[in-house]
Design a protein around this nucleic acid. Sequence first.
DNA 1: GTCATATTCTCAAAAAATGAGAAATATGGA
DNA 2: TCCATATTTCTCATTTTTTGAGAATATGAC
Lengths: 257, 257
Amino acid sequence: MAGLARYMAVLRLFSEGMPTWTVAEMADALQVPQSTAYRTVRDLLSEGLVEMSSEARYRLGPAFIEFDRLTRLTDPLMQAGADVLRALVQEAGVPGVALLCRLYGGEVMCIADHVSPEASFSPSYERGKPMPLTQGATSKAILARLPAKRLSKLIGADAVETMRAELAAIRRAGFCLGRGEIDEGLAGIAVPIVCEPEGLVASLSLVVESHRLAGAREERLRHLVMSAAHEIENLLNHDHQARGPVLPSGEAVGGAD
Amino acid sequence: MAGLARYMAVLRLFSEGMPTWTVAEMADALQVPQSTAYRTVRDLLSEGLVEMSSEARYRLGPAFIEFDRLTRLTDPLMQAGADVLRALVQEAGVPGVALLCRLYGGEVMCIADHVSPEASFSPSYERGKPMPLTQGATSKAILARLPAKRLSKLIGADAVETMRAELAAIRRAGFCLGRGEIDEGLAGIAVPIVCEPEGLVASLSLVVESHRLAGAREERLRHLVMSAAHEIENLLNHDHQARGPVLPSGEAVGGAD
DNA sequence: GTCATATTCTCAAAAAATGAGAAATATGGA
DNA sequence: TCCATATTTCTCATTTTTTGAGAATATGAC
């Protein structure tokens, strides 16, 4: 293991279940001598990617918080999604959680969420937590709009075959409804979001308690989520067009240096 | 430049003002040949630290969101602070923003914030944004409790001399009040938080509009912030004690693998 | 198809990482 | 305070990786 991979291997050791590590533990887990592990940790330390906890233990450092903020401020999907998520939850009128999710390696990850103040539950999907690719409305909505080539590379030709009908149905309907697939008692309505020029495939979903999703309300919420998703798509496309060399109005647009 | 530093140099190029970069621009900014820049970007890409935007431009990747979540879930200060921040803003009874800040390299960074629903302003301090070390109540509260050696290493012996009286006053009073030091029209009440065993120095602050901070209310809010800060300190110390080898109750404590 | 641009590849030279143990430093307890 | 112990850095010859320049290849627009 060399270069960046070695550093990332150390960072990937840290988890919810094991949030602090001694250098000896790291060396053991990665099968490298301690002197090497010490050097690696020293480098990570100086960049703020790792920091000392008590008693010779190390934990993830504050640099991630800084980069996360930059991501929040500059990722077009998050920018477009923030207000829409808030509005969606408010207009839903029932306790719920709105999620904006995307592909992340071989998984799906929520990159923005908004919880309504009355919601007393929290879905497994939450900002920054990788989730399985083939379960849950949120993930399936993404798979449904993935180019065939990328899809089979991700989940394999067999799995593509198994899901073909289901994904086609989602494409046709424009949404995916899942009840208790991930969390017992919760239901999700998910709608794909695609932005061709940026090459991104994501999904917007609303999670509510299953028992609240019946009859006319189900249809109303479905339409809400679909129109919110289209709003995000439009924002993404507008932003993209606004990138051209000439600004539509004569007004100068202020920007940071 | 070698090892991790080279990768971080690329990541540090991305900013609010310049959120996407071409490889040619990176090579130029860092004074390295393009072939080297391409290799570096390829590595970052495969780890999700960078991702492609449109048209040969790259931006920060989603890996930071994942690590940020882990940080949020496992950093003892953020864990202890989350509920306290919320409660503080609620009990304050005026529109305000509660901030939990800490040292980050040669700067101060907010690691958690909570904005009251009625607040129509937002202070310059916000989660993940590095701020100057010597300005603002929030930063000064941290400096006040920093060991002398660390302090002079950070800001230099001259600056220490200049601030000596001010910092001593903060230590004596147990808080720092700043009016418009950072943001015109806003005032901050900041209280230091120290956890010896973890070696951490931080501060809790409440930012409100200056005109709301008068007479009895100022004193009431000051006491609120101080008791909230002490609550965080207590939580940190309790957690630390609970780390001992024997659990107080016979009940098994479930943990991730 | 051709062109321009973006990206990967090639290879010998240069630089950096490696590992084992010694040395230095910090830590906590009498 | 000093000592015993654990943690961290350092040393240096060897191995491995990175580097840089340009060639080769892919990608995409026209």
